[in-house]
């Protein structure tokens, strides 16, 4: 099973033509092919079926398959656009494209909004932000009094929720992020700029003459 080269073509569930994926994303054809090497490695780490399940995703992130993590789980769910419980190669490339240094700020802002909108209502609500703060505190074993957490939430929603309706909509988020650009730091992965250097073996399997 898994992803195997066959007559120069790769047999893999959800595999898409690198030329097509490059046309839809910031990546060059060579970069898409290099990402396939990364994808193969992650998707075969637990079950060699050519798809990344949540356990494999967490294992790749933390090198620890048992770790439960709200944030990693949320990222996985956004990568899994077809809601199949697995990430195929096309999902993987299109999602990572958002994290490319050259991808537009607008795309990054929109993705980050969805990241924090845990229940997909189209709004970032106070209880969602509190849930994430508590998860982070649990992850780091850091302790903060509930009054401190509420004070942080008050301050945040005072700044971000400009119409003061208790929730942050996309336009409020866009404005808030423009005043706090450091919030987008997590949306850019410098590794993606050098992906062909990091995974040079793609050259041996390349299906195109030029990239």
């Amino acid at each position: 099973m898994g992803c195997v080269p066959s007559k120069g073509r790769r047999q893999c569930p959800g595999y898409e033509d690198p030329v097509f994926l490059a046309s839809q994303t910031t990546f060059s054809v060579s970069e898409v092919e290099a990402l396939f090497e990364l994808f193969k490695s992650i998707s075969s780490s637990v079950i060699d079926d050519g798809l990344i399940n949540k356990e494999e995703f967490v294992l790749a992130l933390f090198k620890n398959r048992k770790k439960e993590n709200l944030f990693a789980s949320r990222i996985f769910d956004l990568f899994d656009v077809k809601h199949k419980g697995v990430i195929d190669f096309g999902d993987f490339v299109r999602a990572l494209h958002i994290f490319h240094p050259n991808t537009s700020l607008e795309d990054k802002i929109n993705f980050s909004f969805r990241l924090y909108d845990l229940d997909n209502t189209g709004f970032i609500e106070r209880q969602e932000v509190k849930q994430m703060l508590l998860a982070l505190l649990g992850e780091s074993e850091m302790k903060l009094a509930d009054e401190t957490i509420e004070a942080i939430l008050d301050k945040t929603f005072l700044e971000a929720d400009t119409n003061q309706d208790g929730k942050i909509d996309l336009s409020e988020w866009q404005y808030f992020v423009s005043k706090n650009p450091s919030l987008l730091r997590i949306m850019t992965l410098p590794y993606l700029r050098d992906i062909t250097t990091a995974f040079p073996s793609f050259v041996f399997y390349s299906e195109v003459d030029e990239a």
Binding site: A60, F71, R74, M132, T148, I152, S182, L189
Partner: peptide, 25 residues
């Protein structure tokens, strides 16, 4: 504490995808 909640949340290791690119060879 001068940080907003999102500054704090973005420190989570789960939002840092760098791990995907490490130790994969």
């Amino acid at each position: 504490l001068n940080l907003n909640a999102f500054d704090i949340i973005s420190l989570s290791s789960g939002f840092d995808l760098s791990g995907l690119f490490e130790e994969t060879d």
